[in-house]
Write a protein that binds this DNA or RNA. Structure first.
Lengths: 130, 130
DNA sequence: GTGTTTGCAAACAATTTGCAGAATT
DNA sequence: AATTCTGCAAATTGTTTGCAAACAC
């Protein structure tokens, strides 16, 4: 299954690359639709899945049951605001020891782990204190 | 909204308390149905949600998009097998994430974090090597 | 009696999929 | 020409909800 060029996929990738807010499939859809009014949600999903499989973007889970997408595939952490639902990157050096720690006294094979943080984002925190 | 006794809720809680495999709502449903053939999935969901809200059980997310439920509400980590989907507890002393938390520059308020591990469980690992 | 809980079915939300036609190689 | 990709709609999956009847206090 060789990949073929598609303007829709290019637009999706292009749009995502400009974003730091980790859009959902639906957010990608409503935005890309401005350029391709006939694009379908199915196409957006298919391409996001494809791009995630080839490693060009990453699919992230922050516990709200909705997949978010991130053009930055380097290892880093995410935070989601419980109030407004926004997703942000977290600068946080990571020791990489967590998986090894977990591997001790476990009879299976640990391939990786996911960690995310939650709380109130800067804006919502400020709004609450006023 | 005072809580009233219900046999269904009691059966759900009772069933869950015997399990270490972190059942999904559907697994709880098919089991409890043996005792209450007329119980509905809606009732199971309502009660699981209720029990999670009162803190009697905990709702856990291991990234597969399906909620699992755990009678053990103490803080601990989970592992999910990518092959068979089973969920297991991980013995793992706290990784000092709190320190990392304190160390970072973030303008919001971090209330907590979720970490889970994935890979191959003991059985699936063995099956692969044979 | 008042208020909570139930069963049922319908509603939802996020995501996936079957298919015939359009676009890319 | 062969194959991949698209739009559309219908299907799936996990979960929630509205309602009248049943149950608990």
């Amino acid at each position: 299954m060789a990949l073929k060029y598609s303007r829709q996929r290019e637009a999706i990738k292009e749009f995502l690359s400009t974003r730091k807010d980790h859009p959902t499939a639906d957010m990608v859809y409503t935005q890309v639709r401005k350029e391709f009014p006939n694009i379908s949600l199915g196409t957006v999903y298919r391409n996001l899945t494809l791009l995630a499989e080839t490693g060009e973007i990453s699919r992230i889970n922050v516990g709200d049951g909705i997949d978010h997408f991130d053009p930055d595939t380097s290892e880093h952490y995410h935070f989601q605001c419980k109030k407004c639902g926004c997703v942000q990157d977290l600068k946080l050096e990571h020791t990489g020891k967590t998986n090894e720690l977990a591997a001790m006294q476990f009879d299976g094979e640990i391939m990786g782990s996911v960690t995310y943080f939650y709380g109130l984002c800067g804006k919502c925190k400020e709004a609450r204190n006023s």
